[in-house]
Design a protein around this nucleic acid. Structure first.
Lengths: 157, 157
DNA sequence: GTTAGTGCAAACCTTTTGCAGCTCT
DNA sequence: AGAGCTGCAAAAGGTTTGCACTAAC
């Protein structure tokens, strides 16, 4: 347990949300500028193997990077809004039942599980409905297909 | 709808398992050597946006590649064995209920969902080490991505 | 003929690696 | 001291982009 590892773990524990590698790096650097990005990668790899943290993709909504969170006592589902990007967590007995069913049906022991769900949250649904309505009004006679959301490229500097 | 796109779709439809980009590329090339990797990427991007294919990570068991499958009529869960790497699919009414519960609790409309589960399958729990190794050879090596072979460092001009 | 898709090379970003020097126990 | 970690530079791997050319409708 070195100074750097302690720091990285501390950053992740204090995080109020899911961080990607660069975010962890930035926060660690702010406290101790002598921490190297490579060390963050290596530490994350280690923690992942030990099962102390979980890795998420969040459905690649924000690009293909990975996000990390400290492994809590209970499994939860990540629910993301496709529009505003907000991620919420969800626990359910149904989820536990589902995993039990898999174990029973396949005769297997489940040790990892990840479920990520995307959709439009209550707030964005009303926004979207309004937009759709506007588009419809504009194109009543044109018979145009619905506008696609432009691809947003999430790229680090 | 071009020759290339038709071909790429055909490859994915005929696939008996989840393919990554390079596997799709290799198979397409075998049929029409004039297909370019970039076109595969662009086509996948397109199909993904249209919701015609789904993207999987398979819990990163085989590295950080992405895998693709044509989007069937019903959602299913991917269940992977951590030992032999075999991936099976699982459908359940519980899963539908779970998604309904999320929609109800959050007042949201769920449009994408992905769940991937890892564990030890019935075989791997009981097989002896040597037999496990054989299964691994059969399932993982069949079309395993090229191993990362470190080479002598050579300065690039 | 216009619009959209393709091939190519090169850029880009993220993650991994070899190695030398430094830390922790 | 010895094992293990770290920082560094650079490689490797995967994905995207700019641009000229070609194919599709």
């Amino acid at each position: 347990m070195t100074r750097q590892r302690r720091l990285i773990l501390q950053v992740m524990d204090n995080a109020e949300q899911h961080l990607d590698v660069d975010q962890i790096f930035e926060r660690a650097k702010r406290i101790d500028s002598g921490v190297h990005l490579v060390t963050v990668y290596r530490t994350i790899e280690l923690l992942k193997k030990q099962g102390l943290i979980d890795e998420l993709d969040l459905l690649h909504l924000r690009g293909d990077r990975h996000y990390y969170e400290t492994h809590g006592p209970r499994d939860h589902i990540h629910v993301a809004c496709l529009k505003c990007g907000k991620v919420r967590e969800f626990e359910s007995r149904l989820y536990e039942q589902l995993k039990s069913q898999i174990e029973k049906d396949f005769g297997m022991k489940v040790t990892i599980s990840r479920t990520e769900v995307g959709g439009y949250c209550a707030h964005c649904q009303t926004l979207r409905a309004r937009e759709v309505e506007e588009v419809r009004m504009l194109t009543l006679d044109a018979e145009k297909p619905a506008a696609r959301t432009p691809k947003k490229r999430v790229r680090k500097s």
